[in-house]
């Protein structure tokens, strides 16, 4: 009895310590974000104030919306969504081929991965030159194409892993049931892979949403995306920290929604119950 009580006390203490540590780690991660949130809601004159009772206001958001920011926000949405929609079908096809067949061998698989190892700046200049020639720089189409190309290897790799996890028996069953190889892919593999496609799509969206270097090089004032627009708030009069904070808060919003989405889909695991 005393033993178990002692044990209870010991484990209680351990629980307390564990939680204290976890809370500390959470604060390390969350504090900067909370700080950004607070700054976004303070008038610019109080941006650096440590007074916790300072009055809140939406003046930063108002100033942001009176400028080019809404345009940039829309640009980002169009570019990120467009690039994912463009890249996903190709990534799905390539990923499926890599997962099911020996297509291209190890060389093709490695080269797809290798493109991710290059520092982006290495391809930034050639792309800039190419887009200049094709009259694509300073257009949203250009950015969509560039991001689709950047996303393609990454999405291919993710989807390859996902397709590998789908039992080949399912396709075999569909094929003996009368489907062509394409029919088996379209009617069975694709519906079963929807969670994977959604997850990959969201990750690609985030990648495009946050990309800065290519956006900076390939966009102009009318086609700037959020990261570029935020960077532009650093003016000769100093950084407009209130506006930046408000912009960051708005920029993070779709990502938060997206990650909720992704989580639900990944956890769901649609293949459950198909085999065994």
């Amino acid at each position: 009895m005393t033993d178990s009580a002692g044990q209870g006390r010991g484990s209680g203490l351990r629980l307390l310590l564990t939680h204290a540590l976890l809370i500390l780690v959470c604060l390390v991660i969350l504090l900067p974000l909370l700080w950004v949130l607070r700054v976004s809601l303070l008038p610019p004159s109080l941006s650096y104030s440590t007074d916790l009772s300072a009055p809140l206001s939406l003046v930063n958001f108002e100033s942001l919306f009176s400028g080019r920011f809404p345009r940039s926000y829309l640009n980002s949405l169009v570019v990120a969504t467009g690039s994912v929609l463009l890249a996903l079908p190709f990534a799905a096809a390539t990923g499926y081929a890599f997962a099911r067949f020996t297509t291209g061998g190890a060389v093709a698989r490695f080269s797809v991965l290798a493109t991710q190892m290059l520092p982006p700046v290495v391809i930034a200049l050639p792309i800039f030159q190419m887009f200049q020639t094709l009259d694509l720089s300073n257009t949203l189409t250009g950015l969509i194409l560039a991001y689709a190309a950047l996303n393609l290897p990454f999405l291919t790799w993710i989807l390859m892993g996902f397709f590998k996890g789908i039992p080949v028996d399912l396709e075999w069953a569909a094929m003996t049931d009368g489907a062509t190889a394409w029919g088996a892919f379209w009617r069975v593999v694709l519906p079963v892979s929807l969670p994977g496609l959604a997850a990959a799509g969201v990750l690609g969206f985030i990648l495009a949403w946050n990309e800065f270097l290519f956006a900076l090089i390939l966009s102009g004032p009318n086609t700037a995306t959020i990261p570029v627009a935020l960077a532009a708030l650093q003016t000769s009069n100093g950084i407009q920290i209130g506006d930046v904070a408000a912009g960051v808060v708005l920029a993070v919003l779709p990502l938060m929604i997206a990650s909720r989405f992704i989580q639900r889909f990944i956890v769901e695991g649609l293949t459950l119950g198909s085999v065994k």
Binding site: L170, A173, T176, D177, G178, G273, S274, V275, K276
Partner: peptide, 28 residues
């Protein structure tokens, strides 16, 4: 396979997870 008129029952059953029992049976 689709033109051989054979039906396979797999060890894993390989049921289409996104379809109901009726749809599974009706697929072929």
């Amino acid at each position: 396979p689709r033109d051989r008129d054979v039906a396979v029952v797999f060890q894993s059953y390989a049921l289409y997870p996104h379809m109901t029992v009726a749809a599974n049976m009706a697929f072929g």
